[in-house]
Every structure is written in C-alpha cells, then in structure tokens.
Design a protein around this nucleic acid. Structure first.
Length: 403
RNA sequence: GGGUAGAUGGCAGAGCGGUCAAAUGCACCAGACUGUAAAUCUGGCCUCUCACGAGUACGGGGGUUCGAAUCCCUCUCUACCCA
C-alpha cells in the first residue's frame, strides 16, 4: 500500500518551486516508509475573507497529494494570526479583523477547502488554541529568537523600507507566530507559496530551538491571476473563486491570456507534462476550453463541465442562448403597462450599476433582449417584460423572473 | 520632543481661488474586428434627471470669501531631518 520513497518523492516534487531541503524530505519519507508513521504536513490559511480561489488550491492540491500517499494533513486555521495580518507579498500593511469576522470566515473556508483536500481526514487546528493562552514570558522568548536585522532582510520589509511604506512592529510578529505553529503541531513539512519562504524558514529555526527536527519548507509557485501578470489575489479582483458558478469559472478562464495556459494546466489540473505539451501544441482556443472544463469539473463535477462547454458553444460559436442562464427576480410592481424603460430594466436586472450606466450602454447598442435580439430604440424605450425574458449585455446574459 | 514635506476618483498622478465632476496614464465596461486571447480603432467610466439642471466628492472638523480641491486654523495619519 505504501509507495516506495523514490516514487513518493517524484510525485511530490512535481510542480514544486523550492524545497528546503529536498534531501531532508527524502530522509523524512524514508523514515516514514520504514516506521509506518505518516508525515505531518502543515498548511496554514488565515480566515481574512470569504472567497477561496484557485491560487490557494496550488499548495492545497499538493497537500492532497500528500494525503493520497498516506500522510497527515494538518490545516492551521489562523484565527490568531489573522488578527495580525501576514505582511508576505504585501507592499502595505493589512488591517486587523475582529474576532467575530474571523470565526465566520473560518467556517466558510473549511467548506470551500473541502473541495480540494479531504478535510475529514485532516487535522484541523485553529492557532488560537495555543495563542489564546500565550503569556508574556513566552512572548518575550519568541521575540528573542530573532534579530531585527534578519527580520528586515526579508524582501517585503526591505522593499517597504525603501519605498517609505510603513512597517508596523506587530507585523514582525507574524512570521514568529506562524513558525511557532510548526513547533506546536510538530510539523514535518510546511507547504506554502514562494512568498512564504521566509515564514517557513522561521518555523525551521524555532523548531531547532525547541529541539525538534526542522520541517521541510516546501514552496509552490505563485499562480498568476486573470490578467496574466499579478499574483491571483482576492483584493485584486483577478481571481476565480471555488464557490463561483461553472459559468463564471469557465468564462473567466476563457479570458486569460494564452501565455498563461501552461502555468494553469500545470498547477491547477492533474494532467501530465507530456499531455499538456500536446494540448498546447493544438489550437489555443481548444486548449483553453479544455482548461476551463478541467477546472469546472474539479469543483462542480464532470457533468457541469460538459454542460458549460455545450453552453459556451451555443452562445459564442453558434450565436444562440445557453441552456443554463442565471436568473434575476424583478418585482412585478416595477412594471408600468407590462413594460419597463430599457435603462431602468438593466439596472433592476443588475447588469449595470446605475440608471446612468444603463443609458450609456443602451446608447452604445450593447443591450438586446428576447428571442429576436431586439434592441431598444433608445434608453427610455419601454421594453415589454414577460416572465422568462432573456436580457443580453455584452457577454452577460440573464433571465428575468417576475416576482 | 523640535522642524520640514505630504494626504486628490480602483491605482498612479496633474490641478494650487472661479472656465474642476477635477488633465493624463493604467485598470475596468461596451461597440467594431475576433477565439469571452492578443493587437488595433471607437465610445464610456460618481448619483438622480428625457433634458435644462441638481446633489454628493478632492483625509476629518471649523473659518475667510460672492465663490475653495486650491487661502487660514485645528485634528488625524504618513514620510523625511534633528533629538
């Protein structure tokens, strides 16, 4: 049942960015195989917002691989660290959250993470568990384990220092807290994005201080977002969320730059490198559809992927309407003689943010409705609204329900 | 503790008493072209209004003025220099 060391090592290091150190991982794997004791693989996530996105799944997928090989996933929910805010990869400081927000977010995260990792088999540990009782003497000891110089060496801080962006003292606490988590749970491996390297290395040091065998710092590449440039992030609006509908996930994927496909295939699907080469050698458009379908299949199942692909063809290749159309309910009371002025209708349907934008879009000829794709004469032209009417604005399409 | 310079729309960054809902760039939305890619061209990008127009908005508060993003006071925050 247990796979041999070399095989495990080969599977695990695929797609990895950097390991500190690869030899240590091999040794730990060998020991695990010999003793039958699974490795404890840590991954921490701070409950700072609601949407878990594809960027998070890169290390999470790796975590699942560890699980599949029989190792123990230890998910740290950063209930304590979320109050500090991770300075990694930030060029400004984060705002601390209230305990209530943190609890709500934590619950939501777990359900979302469950789509990638087997949460039922994982050890889930909020780090408030130990930090809640952390006394001042322990804090002093923790702070005494690192020098200011080393803290300032880290990339994020040195950049902010140079650009005169504030660095708050409590932010320096973050890596130490994360490192201490590793001591608490006796981690063998800690997963993270490459921007986590500093934090992961701190964990190694603290473990050494605590006379533990240091964890392997295992970093995965950072996934770039829809723009193809910046890191996928919740604050950048360039992400695909795990909780989004198949249509949204697929649509967003279709809009990524072609050059991003290899990265996404590699980090987000289980396709083999040779297979990816073959796919990318073909038509880019076909490759991208496949990528989108792969992603949708992972979070909504194969049937949803087939459906969304079919719908895409209907809407954009044939020029018809998809089978699955999002719906919006408009109060029947808004109708005057069974109709609503075009601009207002767009706003009510949520296709535009304001009546003014609705007017502009009508003027631009971006709006049409119904089976014959009629366009209103102008933005105040009354559009007869019946239950089930289809509205189209650009690539958006929505079905109106009267309520 | 003392001094200096700053705080403008999602971001960057002009404006420095009326002609400012605020140049320009990026981002974003739509149209043409297309593969919901790239490139290119066009239009748009605070809210309400058919429109005239009105209301909000240039860190918070107060003041001067017929009139302030622009001047003064004060508060908050930031950077830099000195201690």
């Amino acid at each position: 049942m247990v796979r041999p060391v070399e095989e495990q090592f080969a599977i695990l290091t695929r797609g990895a960015a950097q390991l500190e150190t690869a030899d240590e991982l091999k040794r730990k794997l060998a020991k695990s195989v010999a003793t039958g004791v699974p490795l404890r693989v840590k991954y921490g996530i701070d409950p700072t917002g609601f949407d878990v996105h594809l960027g998070h799944t890169v290390p999470l997928r790796k975590l699942r691989q560890f699980q599949e090989l029989g190792h123990t996933a230890v998910l740290i929910i950063g209930t304590a660290t979320a109050q500090v805010g991770d300075p990694s990869g930030r060029d400004d400081s984060r705002v601390g959250l209230t305990p209530e927000q943190i609890d709500a977010n934590a619950a939501s995260y777990l359900t979302q993470i469950a789509k990638v990792v087997d949460v039922t088999k994982a050890e889930v540990r909020p780090n408030g568990e130990w930090f809640r009782h952390f006394d001042f003497a322990s804090m002093l000891k923790l702070l005494g384990s690192m020098t200011m110089q080393r803290m300032l060496e880290r990339d994020d801080f040195s950049k902010r220092l140079k650009s005169n962006t504030p660095i708050y003292l409590h932010e320096c606490l973050y890596p130490l807290m994360q490192g201490h988590d590793s001591v608490e749970i006796r981690a063998d491996v800690e997963l993270g994005g490459t921007e986590q390297l500093f934090n992961l290395m701190v964990g190694r040091n603290l473990q050494r201080d605590a006379k533990q065998e240091p964890q392997v710092a295992f970093t995965m590449p950072i996934l770039r977002g829809l723009d193809g440039e910046k890191k996928m992030g919740k604050s950048l609006a360039n992400y695909v969320g795990l909780a989004e509908t198949p249509r949204e996930q697929f649509g967003k994927t279709m809009r990524i730059p072609d050059g991003l496909m290899r990265e996404w295939f590699t980090l987000l699907t289980s396709r083999e490198p040779g297979e990816i080469d073959a796919i990318l050698a073909g038509k880019p458009n076909e490759a991208k559809k496949l990528l989108g379908a792969d992603i949708v299949a992972g979070y909504h199942g194969p049937a949803a992927a087939t459906q969304v692909l079919d719908d895409w063809r209907k809407q954009f290749e044939v020029g018809g309407d998809p089978d699955v159309i999002p719906e919006v309910t408009i109060p029947a009371g808004e109708l005057v003689d069974g109709a609503i002025p075009a601009a207002k209708l767009l706003a009510l349907a949520g296709l535009v943010k304001s009546n003014g934008e609705g007017r502009r879009k009508c003027d631009e000829g971006a709006f049409n409705f119904g089976p014959d794709r009629a366009k209103p004469a102008d933005f105040k032209a009354a559009v007869t609204v019946t239950d089930g009417l289809i509205l189209r604005l650009g690539r958006a399409i929505i079905r109106v329900r009267l309520g």
